[in-house]
Simulated scan of single mutants.
Amino acid sequence: MNDLDTSPVLKAMQVFFMVNLPDTEVDLATYGEDQVKALCEHFKVDLERMGCQLEHVTSTEWPALKAHMFRNKTRSTDVMFKKLFTDQNLKIRL
């Protein structure tokens, strides 16, 4: 069986694939909330050790990231994330 089907963590990570974004801003409002919460819970110890505030991730960082993804959904996932991690303005904003 495929790991994407059996691993809850890998399944939740699919929220970051551009092809999975909803088509409308209305659907975007709640898109990925459960998946991001599941990832935060799974990686909680490591994230908190690195100084991440999990409430901030779910309330502020995720909505900002998914809005950015939605605005750039014509790009491929790898191109979008490469720009996200290399563009200093985006690193500060998101």
Score class of each variant (00 low, 15 high):
residue 4 L to T: 08
residue 63 P to S: 06
residue 56 H to N: 12
residue 89 N to H: 10
residue 47 L to I: 04
residue 24 T to L: 03
residue 74 T to Q: 14
residue 63 P to T: 06
residue 78 D to Y: 07
residue 28 L to C: 06
residue 53 Q to L: 14
residue 92 I to N: 09
residue 51 G to W: 04
residue 15 V to T: 03
residue 19 V to I: 11
residue 69 M to A: 05
residue 83 K to F: 05
residue 52 C to Q: 12
residue 58 T to H: 03
residue 86 T to C: 07
residue 85 F to C: 08
residue 88 Q to M: 10
residue 19 V to Q: 15
residue 22 P to D: 01
residue 16 F to D: 03
residue 60 T to H: 11
residue 87 D to Q: 08
residue 49 R to T: 12
residue 59 S to H: 09
residue 31 Y to A: 01
residue 29 A to G: 05
residue 22 P to C: 00
residue 30 T to H: 03
residue 68 H to R: 11
residue 35 Q to N: 14
residue 21 L to V: 08
residue 12 A to H: 05
residue 55 E to V: 12
residue 25 E to Y: 01
residue 10 L to A: 05
residue 85 F to Q: 03
residue 24 T to Y: 00
residue 26 V to I: 12
residue 35 Q to L: 04
residue 89 N to I: 06
residue 44 K to M: 07
residue 45 V to I: 14
residue 50 M to D: 15
residue 66 K to Q: 09
residue 60 T to W: 05
residue 91 K to I: 11
residue 79 V to T: 12
residue 13 M to T: 06
residue 71 R to P: 04
residue 78 D to T: 11
residue 63 P to K: 04
residue 59 S to A: 14
residue 61 E to V: 14
residue 4 L to F: 14
residue 52 C to S: 13
residue 34 D to G: 12
residue 43 F to G: 00
residue 17 F to I: 09
residue 23 D to I: 04
residue 68 H to Y: 11
residue 86 T to L: 08
residue 94 L to G: 01
residue 29 A to T: 13
residue 14 Q to V: 05
residue 6 T to A: 10
residue 83 K to A: 12
residue 17 F to D: 15
residue 52 C to W: 13
residue 61 E to T: 14
residue 93 R to E: 15
residue 52 C to V: 11
residue 39 L to W: 03
residue 75 R to E: 13
residue 56 H to E: 11
residue 58 T to F: 00
residue 76 S to P: 04
residue 59 S to G: 05
residue 76 S to N: 09
residue 90 L to K: 02
residue 90 L to V: 07
residue 32 G to F: 01
residue 37 K to W: 03
residue 64 A to M: 13
residue 92 I to C: 06
residue 94 L to Q: 03
residue 18 M to N: 01
residue 1 M to D: 12
residue 22 P to R: 00
residue 75 R to S: 12
residue 35 Q to V: 04
residue 77 T to M: 04
residue 67 A to C: 08
residue 38 A to E: 13
residue 57 V to K: 03
residue 34 D to C: 08
residue 93 R to C: 07
residue 53 Q to F: 10
